[in-house]
């Protein structure tokens, strides 16, 4: 899933200070799972904003909506009939949802309610961690199912570096060294000799470096 964190309330107040009617739009997908932008967070943000405005002696009308997803036309269309009643919207979806809403509702100012961080997993309750950077050419088959691009601080394809200490990364003692994990798993799989295969220079053109990416499936296009 896409992992996000709530933006500091003061930053959001700064965005909407000059408006009186605001639409808060949550998303029922990833940001709900990571407790950053679901129905509950929309409720909390609505109360926080109302209180902040009251303190400044201003009135605020807030409407709370949480959509199934904000990355599909179908669900974003659900607010078409009401959005024009509001001066501005705050989307608590990931950066994808915020932008898609802004594209669709061109005249309405749309602000982000979360900071979007990464594609990751719920390691345990309350702990999320990065697993993929969407490089567009998966190498997990060569690295024992552990991604050095997303999990090594230097994204070394032929690691580990000299800073790997007791299984941890040199930049943070809490962070597992991705290459230690790869080696441990290769050993478990009885394939430690695979470690000596040189991973070739990567073609980064399928990643961010190649410019904004798009997938077109002619068989599905209408």
């Amino acid at each position: 899933m896409i992992v996000a964190e709530k933006k500091p309330i003061d930053e959001i107040i700064g965005f909407v200070r000059d408006y009186r009617k605001i639409l808060l739009v949550g998303c029922n997908e990833c940001v709900t799972v990571c407790y950053a932008g679901g129905k509950k967070e929309v409720e909390i943000l609505a109360s926080a904003l109302t209180m902040a405005f009251m303190k400044e002696g201003k009135e605020l009308e807030v409407k709370e909506v949480t959509l199934e997803r904000q990355c599909d036309h179908e669900y974003l269309e659900e607010i078409r009939n009401i959005i024009d009643e509001y001066d501005a919207a705050v989307s608590l979806a990931c950066g994808v949802g915020v932008q898609f809403m802004a594209e669709k509702y061109f005249r309405t100012p749309v602000f982000p309610g979360v900071n979007t961080l990464f594609m990751g997993v719920t390691e345990e309750r309350g702990v999320w961690a990065e697993r993929c950077q969407g490089c567009g050419k998966c190498i997990l088959g060569e690295t024992a199912g552990i991604c050095p691009i997303s999990r090594c601080a230097k994204r070394l394809l032929n690691g580990p570096c000299g800073g790997s200490t007791k299984g941890k990364c040199e930049i943070n003692k809490e962070l597992d060294c991705a290459w230690q994990l790869i080696i441990d798993r290769l050993k478990e799989l009885g394939r430690l000799e695979d470690y000596e295969e040189l991973i070739p220079i990567k073609d980064w053109s399928t990643e961010r470096a190649g410019g904004p990416r798009k997938v077109i499936r002619e068989d599905l296009k209408q």
């Binding site: 580990p160 800073g163 790997s164 430690l192 470690y195 040189l198």
Partner: peptide
């Protein structure tokens, strides 16, 4: 460079072998 002391120790020599396979001609150690 080569660091004989970093972890995991068991791949420190294989790592040297990888650098040699890549074409390295001299090594300065940690």
């Amino acid at each position: 460079a080569a660091n004989p002391f970093a972890d995991p120790f068991e791949i420190r020599v294989p790592r040297l072998a990888k650098k040699i396979a890549a074409g390295v001609e001299f090594i300065q150690t940690q």
